[in-house]
């Protein structure tokens, strides 16, 4: 890795760590608890940022996949692959935090309403994406198949977003989209969204560097 690259990585990592500390402190300690739900509402400062970052990650997978199919350049594929792994991570975190939030408020860890079901499908689509990559031996062919899944899988995101409007659900409509959050609670939420986005950027840069090294290693092995 180039010197400049590692310095940028360090800056990004420190920025993410600092933003997370400030964001979580503001959200979990400083901000007042919600009038109706009480302390348990603070799970929002984890649940909402992780799902938005998961959406961002899969949007990047979509862009990387389109870029790869159009240009067949390895870099696009490395980007899509790295972002898919992070998207799976953040989707799993969203579902876990949502379940922990659901139990004390709704009275259930899980229920098969449209919002939760379509989010579970999102996780399965991209787990399938990663399994497909691992299963296809020919790497260029694997990358091509994965790109198709990466583009089609993205279609689930607008469905998830609209699920609470299209169908009757237990999950409430989007608070952010409706501006239904008091500024006192909204500010820490945006802090955390920013912090998790920085964390995503840092992890993505790391994972892409790893992807490039993997590709280089494969190339050298083939040359031997």
């Amino acid at each position: 890795m180039a010197r400049g690259g590692s310095r940028l990585m360090l800056v990004l990592g420190l920025a993410a760590a600092a933003a997370l500390l400030v964001g979580l402190y503001t959200g979990l300690v400083r901000a007042p608890a919600d009038a109706v739900q009480g302390e348990v509402q603070r799970i929002m400062y984890l649940h909402v940022p992780t799902v938005l970052v998961a959406y961002l990650a899969f949007t990047v997978v979509f862009v990387g996949s389109v870029g790869y199919l159009l240009t067949r350049r390895e870099g696009w594929d490395i980007l899509a692959h790295a972002s898919a792994e992070l998207g799976v991570l953040f989707t799993a975190l969203t579902i876990a935090a949502g379940a922990i939030w659901g139990k004390p408020t709704w009275g259930a860890w899980w229920t098969w309403d449209a919002r939760i079901t379509t989010t579970a499908i999102l996780l399965l689509i991209y787990l399938g994406y990663l399994m497909l990559r691992a299963a296809v031996e020919d790497q260029t062919r694997g990358a091509r198949y994965a790109a198709v899944v990466g583009i089609l899988g993205f279609l689930d995101i607008p469905i998830i977003h609209k699920s609470v409007e299209w169908w009757r659900t237990l999950h409430q409509p989007s608070s952010l989209a409706r501006g239904a959050i008091d500024p006192v609670l909204l500010f820490p939420l945006w802090l955390n969204i920013t912090a998790f986005a920085l964390l995503y950027a840092f992890l993505l840069a790391q994972r892409m560097e790893l992807g490039r090294l993997e590709a280089e290693l494969t190339r050298r092995r083939l040359e031997e």
Partner: peptide, 9 residues
């Protein structure tokens, strides 16, 4: 319990 999307102190 179904709760609203509103959050406020």
């Amino acid at each position: 319990a179904k709760h609203s999307e509103e959050y406020r102190p």
